[in-house]
Amino acid sequence: MQINGDLSEQDRRAEARRLRVDPGLSRSQLIKMFGVSNGTLTDWLRGVEPPAWTKRPNAKDDKRAEAVELREAGWSLKDIAEQLDVAKSTAFRWAGHIPLDQDSERAQEKRELAKKRIAGRWGQFREERDRRQNEVWDAAVDEVGRLTERDILLIGAINYWCEGSKSKPWCRSDRLVFINSDPGLVEIHLRFLELGGYSLDELGFRLSIHETADAEAAADWWAERLGVPRDRFRRPTIKKHVPKTRRGNVGDDYHGCLVIDAPKSRSLYWRMEGVVKAVTRQASSGFPEIGGRR
């Protein structure tokens, strides 16, 4: 049947849109019925959904749904592509809009597997590296030998100059105040103070530690490590936690920084300054001749 050509363009357009919806005629039927071109019919039907019977099921609809499920379970796009045997670009088109959950069970399993692969790949290399490192350490111990009091004086002065509080021209404070988290460097400083005539019961000790740590336990650890009476420790300085800062020193071996204050230490502070000046002067003046270079 062909629609009467006497109808206006607008009426013919409205009738075509109605027939496309109910009873759901095909495009070829409408073209034959209205005697119009494919382009004209396309313009008439713009915005009209095709009938359900014209929509063919997509063979990959099930895979697309599975891709979404895998992505929500924490699968990477690469793994999804391999699992479903599709291109990575296809996996991205199907599930790339879903953020990867780094805390999912799948993501955690992948990280553990990666760690095991790396450990297996580099295990032998690390063993060899550690063996060579220990050899170098042993040779260094033999080279250093036994330290004299003069050696301790030089090392202690440089140690303080690197890590201790220093007097400034605009803020004079000729007093030894040392702060560090390394027990070895702290012990060197205590030996330096001992050579300067100080005993442990003359020094002040204070802990500087983040509020997320156990200040009391840390103070106990320092007291036992250094052999310092626990009652020599003053009230700790607690550092506020900044959530945006990613700190690495958060494990069981974190004990904060220890501050050691030596009262009435002006003369020893000046002596430390003099030793540092002498060491740096001699070291720098001899540098051009090291290795035969001038």
Rank of each mutant, 00 (worst) to 15 (best):
L19D: 06
I158P: 01
R121K: 13
S199P: 01
P23C: 01
S199Y: 05
K116D: 11
P229R: 07
N159T: 13
R117Q: 09
P51A: 07
S173M: 13
S26T: 15
L84P: 05
Q102D: 15
V228S: 06
A52P: 00
M33L: 11
K78T: 14
H189D: 04
K63S: 08
P288L: 08
E128I: 12
D11L: 14
M1W: 08
A217D: 15
L77H: 00
K277C: 09
E128D: 14
A219P: 04
P57D: 02
N38W: 08
E9Q: 12
R132Q: 13
G204Y: 06
T54L: 14
G286F: 06
L113C: 05
A59P: 05
L147G: 03
K239W: 11
L258N: 01
A278T: 15
E216H: 12
I238W: 02
M272L: 03
D220F: 05
A219Q: 11
G274F: 02
P169S: 05
S285L: 12
V21E: 13
E224H: 11
S165D: 07
W122E: 15
V136L: 10
F192H: 13
R46I: 04
A215N: 07
G123V: 02
A218K: 04
D61R: 14
E66T: 04
L7M: 09
L113T: 12
E109H: 10
N134T: 09
L176Y: 01
Q108N: 07
T90A: 08
A140F: 10
W222G: 07
L30E: 03
N180M: 05
R247P: 00
L70W: 00
Q2D: 10
F287K: 15
L190M: 13
G96E: 06
T280N: 11
W170Y: 11
E112L: 11
R18V: 03
W221N: 10
R172E: 15
D138P: 02
L258H: 01
K63D: 05
T148Y: 01
G184L: 09
I3L: 08
R71P: 00
S167V: 06
L258F: 03
D11C: 03
L100R: 13
K116Y: 06
W137M: 14
R12T: 03
T40G: 00
I80A: 00
F287V: 08
R247M: 08
R13G: 04
R150T: 07
R175S: 15
V228A: 05
R281M: 10
H189Y: 15
